[in-house]
Amino acid sequence: MNRNEAERDTRKHGKHLRVPVLPCEELTIKENASKASLTVAEYLRRLSLGYEITSTLDSQYVAQIVKINADQGRLGGLLKLWLTDDAKLTACGTPLTPGMVRALLKRIEANQDEMLRLVQALKF
């Protein structure tokens, strides 16, 4: 195969198909392509060739959940440190106050609520 034949086999030099769509259909197609992290052309090509389109939003939600879970672990460790009255706390001069514990517990609750929201947004 010479160079000219190789150039003709690329998508750039391939056939371009035109499909008339309504404005509302255009928006839907663009949104769906974006959700799959694909260009409109690649999205339509894959659909027409029978490939299953998977959303990348679910993996983004899972990544956010993993980060929140790590935050929960750190907050739990901090709470455990405070409740055991560790000598490290006295060395830095930070006394344990009920207000600090309440604030930490509220932060843990907020993280739990955020994790629940993200899990509910996942499509199973």
Rank of each mutant, 00 (worst) to 15 (best):
89 L>C: 10
65 I>W: 12
52 E>S: 15
72 Q>M: 12
16 H>I: 09
36 A>K: 01
66 V>I: 05
49 L>Y: 13
98 P>Y: 03
41 A>K: 10
15 K>A: 11
23 P>F: 05
41 A>W: 13
45 R>P: 07
98 P>A: 06
26 E>K: 14
86 D>A: 14
67 K>A: 09
13 H>I: 08
78 L>I: 00
51 Y>D: 13
85 D>A: 10
97 T>W: 15
60 Q>M: 09
70 A>N: 08
82 W>Y: 12
39 T>E: 01
96 L>Y: 09
21 V>D: 04
37 S>E: 06
57 L>W: 09
23 P>D: 03
24 C>D: 13
81 L>I: 13
25 E>G: 14
78 L>Q: 02
63 A>N: 09
49 L>A: 09
35 K>C: 15
53 I>F: 01
45 R>C: 06
87 A>C: 03
45 R>K: 14
17 L>Y: 15
81 L>E: 10
71 D>L: 11
92 C>V: 15
93 G>L: 13
57 L>C: 13
51 Y>M: 04
82 W>N: 03
33 A>Y: 01
100 M>Y: 01
64 Q>P: 05
45 R>L: 03
88 K>T: 10
52 E>Q: 11
28 T>Y: 03
71 D>P: 05
73 G>Q: 13
98 P>H: 06
43 Y>M: 10
52 E>W: 12
33 A>M: 00
97 T>F: 15
20 P>I: 07
97 T>L: 13
98 P>G: 10
64 Q>T: 06
98 P>T: 05
54 T>S: 11
51 Y>K: 04
67 K>F: 12
14 G>H: 02
28 T>Q: 09
78 L>R: 03
13 H>E: 13
36 A>W: 00
14 G>V: 04
21 V>L: 10
81 L>R: 15
57 L>P: 09
36 A>C: 05
75 L>R: 03
